[in-house]
Design a protein around this nucleic acid. Structure first.
Lengths: 149, 149
DNA sequence: TTCGCTGCAAACCATTTGCACCCAT
DNA sequence: ATGGGTGCAAATGGTTTGCAGCGAA
């Protein structure tokens, strides 16, 4: 997910249209949380996002951050990602975002994205062979990134 | 992980030798938990295992099950697996167990294992291209299994 | 006789929820 | 003026830990 202003704006517009169709409301807090989230580009936990936001505006409840991220998830604009540390992180998601997998650096915690069509194809083959119909998948590589190596 | 008596016995021997090298102790509870775990073949949560064991012997604490599974994990005889439901499951692990990935049925919750060398090879290629050195990976396919389809 | 192990209950910690008030619509 | 949204604090639920007693070495 690129962290460009243009992309953020497009996503923000989608968020606005999503809450409109659901007769839900746009509020100062919600808009701020959503904007901040899109600006970070994702791969962030609720608590981290909450921390970022509190720097500029006090009095935003952690619960509201959770509720907003859940709202975005329902609207297909965010996606929960869980690695093995018990913390839920959220990534920016949208129709213009291609599917991708993750490389997680065990040293600095950075999450890089990648995509590989061949792997996806092989996954489908394996599943088909077992009579299993795939609706989703998750592929994560853990190791040391270029900077930390 | 095949659920054969021979395999269970071999694993149990490894467990015994592991605790010996650590000056830790073999106890009635521990042995029972370990035996039961190996017999199930894994893919089970601490609570599920605790439930199974309480059928035959009362008074086994859930905490002890957690502690024992952690012990096995330290000894390389079990491995924690976390899907997206917030529950930690454990699979049987050992030097004689080949690496494998998982297919999780979203209907019945069953976990099937598979392995595919070509996918592993492609993963290494992708990582190398990014200057990332892999130490571990996780691949999970979610969908509907043959029986549920 | 050590010292690790156990059961229990309390503590943890990320996340969710109940509630009374607030504020878009 | 509705009824959804908010902050706060309390609840939840899987997992961990402190502790006094137990039992393997």
């Amino acid at each position: 997910m690129k962290n460009s202003t243009a992309t953020s704006n497009r996503l923000f517009a989608r968020y606005k249209s999503f809450i409109a169709t659901q007769s839900r409301k746009s509020t100062t807090q919600r808009d701020l949380i959503v904007t901040s989230f899109f600006k970070t580009g994702g791969h962030i936990s609720a608590e981290e996002l909450h921390g970022l936001i509190k720097k500029t505006k006090k009095n935003i409840g952690l619960a509201t951050v959770y509720r907003t991220l859940k709202l975005l998830t329902e609207g297909g604009l965010a996606k929960e990602m869980r690695f093995n540390d018990g913390i839920t992180r959220y990534e920016v998601e949208g129709p213009e975002c291609a599917h991708h997998d993750h490389m997680v650096c065990l040293e600095c915690g950075k999450v890089e994205e990648f995509e590989n069509e061949m792997i996806e194809k092989l996954q489908k083959e394996v599943a088909t062979k077992c009579g299993f119909s795939i609706s989703d998948h998750k592929l994560e590589l853990y190791g040391i990134c270029k900077e930390c190596g």
